[in-house]
Design a protein around this nucleic acid. Structure first.
Lengths: 204, 204
DNA sequence: TGGAAATAATGAACACTGTTCATTAAATTT
DNA sequence: AAATTTAATGAACAGTGTTCATTATTTCCA
C-alpha cells in the first residue's frame, strides 16, 4: 500500500512549497508585506488552499520559524567548532550576531515577532529554539566545569550570554540604536565591540 | 488675538485625547487589537477625524511612544536617586527591568515594535528615547570617571548595559524564554539574577 | 446682525487583510 | 464505468488603514 506513503509525501512537499514561498516573500518584500494571498500567488495556488495545510497564519509562521532555526543550527555546527569551550562560546556569539545582522527578517521571526509563538500552549515549551539553545547550554556547561567563565549556574549564564547577544542584535534590527549618533558602520562596530567586551568580562 | 492660541490649545487637547484613547486600548485590549476605529470609538469620534490630527497610524504611535518614554523618565528620576554613580546604575537597571515587566505593552511600543520608528527619516536620530538614554549615559560617564566599572568607553558601556537589560526583558515579553523549562516565577527570578550578576561582573 | 469664507467632522468608499464555506475538479475505490 | 472520497477554488465576511466628497460648525467681515 505505497499510496498512503505517497499521500503523506505529497502533503509534506506541499507544506514545504508553502514554507519556501513564505520565506521568499520575507526575503524580498519583508515580513510586513507578506500576506497569505501573496504567498499563495507566489506558489501559484489559491489562498484557500493554504488553509488545507495550515490551520492559520500563525501555524505557518511557526513552521517557517522552525526552518529558520535549522539554518542557525547549521551555522553553529559549521562555525563553532573549537574544542576549547570558551573559544567555542566566542564562536557561538559571533555566529549568532552575524546571523542576526545578515538575516534580519528571519531573526525577527525567530526571536522578536509574537505571531509564531501563539501556537504554543500555555505552560508548554518551545520546541523550535530547542536545539540551538542546547548547543549554547552544553558549551556553557563545559566552560563552567573547566572554570573558564565567572558563572556557576548554567541557566543564568546561558540566559545572560543569550540576552546580551540578542539585546544588541534586536536593538539594531528594531532601529532603536538611532538614539546614538552613529553611522551604520559605527553601529556594527559597536555591537561587535560590546560582545567582545562582554566575553572578556566573563572570562576567568 | 487669543483666538489662535485657543486653536492651538484645542488641537493639542484633541491630540492628547487621541493618545490617551490609544493608551487605554493598549492597556485593556493589547497592541494587536488596537485599531484606528477602536481608538476613535473609545474617544467618541469618527475614524476619519483622527487623520485630521495625525498623518497616519505610525505618527500616532510615535506620539504614544513619546508619552511612554516620559513615564519611564519619571520612574528613573524617582527611583535612581543614589549619589554614588554605581549604586545609581544599579537602580537604573532595576527600574528598567521592573518597568518593562510591569508595562509590557508600552515596552513593546517603546523598544520592539517597528511601526513608530517609520516616522524617523533615514540617518535622522530618535528623539523619543533621548532623555532616558542620556540619563543612562551620564550615570555611566560618572562611573567611568570614578573607575567604578570595567569599561573605558561610555558608548560601549551604555550600549552593553542597555542591551543586557533589554535582552532579558524582550526575550521574556516575546515569549522566547519558553525554551527554558521554568515556571513564570522562575523566569522573573532568573532575569533579576542575570542583571545582578552582570552588575557584579562590570564592577571594579 | 446676517451672509460669506474658512475650518472641523463625518459617512461612505477603496484596497487590502485573515479566514470560511459551498461548489467544482480530480483522484481513488468499488 | 459509477460512486465515493479527497483536493482545490471562487466568492464572500468581517476586519484593517486610509482618502475624499459632503455636511456641520465656527470665524470673519460688510
Amino acid at each position: 500500500m505505497g499510496i498512503n506513503e505517497r499521500k503523506v509525501r505529497e502533503r509534506n512537499e506541499m507544506r514545504q512549497r508553502i514554507i519556501q514561498g513564505a520565506i521568499h516573500m520575507f526575503m524580498t518584500e519583508g515580513y510586513e508585506k507578506t500576506s497569505i494571498r501573496n504567498i499563495a500567488e507566489k506558489i501559484e495556488y489559491s489562498p484557500a488552499t493554504i488553509y488545507l495545510y495550515y490551520k492559520d497564519k500563525d501555524e505557518l509562521l511557526y513552521d517557517v520559524q522552525k526552518e529558520a532555526f535549522q539554518g542557525l543550527l547549521v551555522e553553529f555546527q559549521a562555525r563553532a567548532t573549537a574544542t576549547d569551550p570558551f573559544e567555542r562560546l566566542t564562536q557561538i556569539c559571533q555566529t549568532y550576531v552575524r546571523f542576526g545582522l545578515t538575516n534580519q527578517e528571519m531573526y525577527n521571526l525567530m526571536f522578536i515577532l509574537k505571531a509564531p509563538m501563539n501556537v504554543i500552549e500555555e505552560q508548554e515549551y518551545w520546541k523550535n529554539g530547542d536545539d540551538c539553545f542546547a548547543f549554547l547550554t552544553t558549551c556553557i556547561h563545559e566552560c563552567i566545569q573547566l572554570k573558564q567563565i565567572r558563572y556557576d549556574n548554567v541557566m543564568i549564564a546561558a540566559l545572560s550570554v543569550w540576552s546580551m547577544a540578542h539585546g544588541l542584535v534586536s536593538l539594531d534590527i528594531c532601529c532603536r540604536m538611532k538614539v546614538m549618533e552613529m553611522e551604520e558602520e559605527g553601529v556594527v562596530h559597536a555591537i561587535t565591540a560590546s560582545v567582545n567586551e562582554y566575553l572578556k568580562l566573563i572570562k576567568n
